[in-house]
Structures are given as structure tokens and as C-alpha cells.
């Protein structure tokens, strides 16, 4: 097997942080050996198939899939960052055991026209 022809190299610009890169490349680790190398303004990713030669059309297909996947994981990261607090709030409320019912306070003291507590006291 020609080792040099059996891998492709993809440059990933530094706008993608390492978490996005790792999450994206994770899904390729079932079939490919992945090597990440530091480069100027980004990283180089070396990809070679596990134990089998690379097919020519496969090389191009992998490039396209990785580029698409990087964009998707970048979007996922944005969503996760932006929703972290509200997600925590929703989960905390879901499993909290306290009753957080707030009785609204307003200038109108008896919004139904009479004070039911006063009424029951009067009729005693």
C-alpha cells in the first residue's frame, strides 16, 4: 500500500475551535485514522482509511462530508452556547421540589370586587 497516496490532508481554519473539530472528526474514526497537526492559522487533518486503500472518489467525498459536518458542528456549538443557561433553568425547574407560585401584588387589593377573607370574618 502506498502510504503517501493513501491519505488526504484537510486544512481547518482557526475559526473552528478544537471542540468543534473533535466532535466533527469523531464520526469518521470508525473507518479512518485521523491525525491532527498544528498549522499557521489553523490545523491540518490527515485522514487515511483503516487497513484498506483510499478510493479516488472517496477522497473527494470525505473532503465534502467533513467540510459540511464542520459547519453543522459549528452551528451546534452556537446553539449550545446560547441555550446553556435556559437549558439549566428548565432542568432545574423540572426537578425542583419547591412550590414557586408567586402571588401577584398590585394596587388593586380585591380584584374580584370583595375580599373573601373579610367576608368570611364578617359572617362568623
Amino acid at each position: 500500500m502506498d502510504v503517501y497516496n493513501n491519505c488526504i490532508e484537510i486544512f481547518v481554519p482557526s475559526q473552528y475551535n478544537m471542540q468543534v473539530v473533535h466532535k466533527c472528526l469523531y464520526w469518521f474514526t470508525g473507518k479512518y485514522d485521523i491525525e491532527i497537526i498544528d498549522a499557521v492559522n489553523g490545523i491540518n487533518v490527515k485522514i487515511s482509511p483503516l487497513n484498506v486503500p483510499f478510493k479516488e472518489d472517496e477522497k473527494n467525498e470525505i473532503r465534502i462530508r467533513i467540510n459540511k459536518s464542520l459547519i453543522d458542528y459549528y452551528l451546534r456549538e452556537q446553539i449550545q452556547k446560547e441555550t446553556k443557561t435556559i437549558r439549566e433553568l428548565i432542568i432545574a425547574k423540572a426537578f425542583s421540589h419547591f412550590d414557586d407560585e408567586i402571588i401577584p401584588e398590585s394596587l388593586v387589593s380585591d380584584p374580584i370586587g370583595f375580599d373573601p377573607h373579610k367576608l368570611s370574618n364578617d359572617t362568623k
Partner: peptide, 10 residues
């Protein structure tokens, strides 16, 4: 608008 927690798939 503000995003709520979700995931997506093509």
C-alpha cells in the same frame, strides 16, 4: 428571538 435548547439532523 432567543433560541431554546434543541439539536438538529439533516
Amino acid at each position: 428571538y432567543h433560541l431554546l435548547p434543541f439539536r438538529f439532523r439533516r
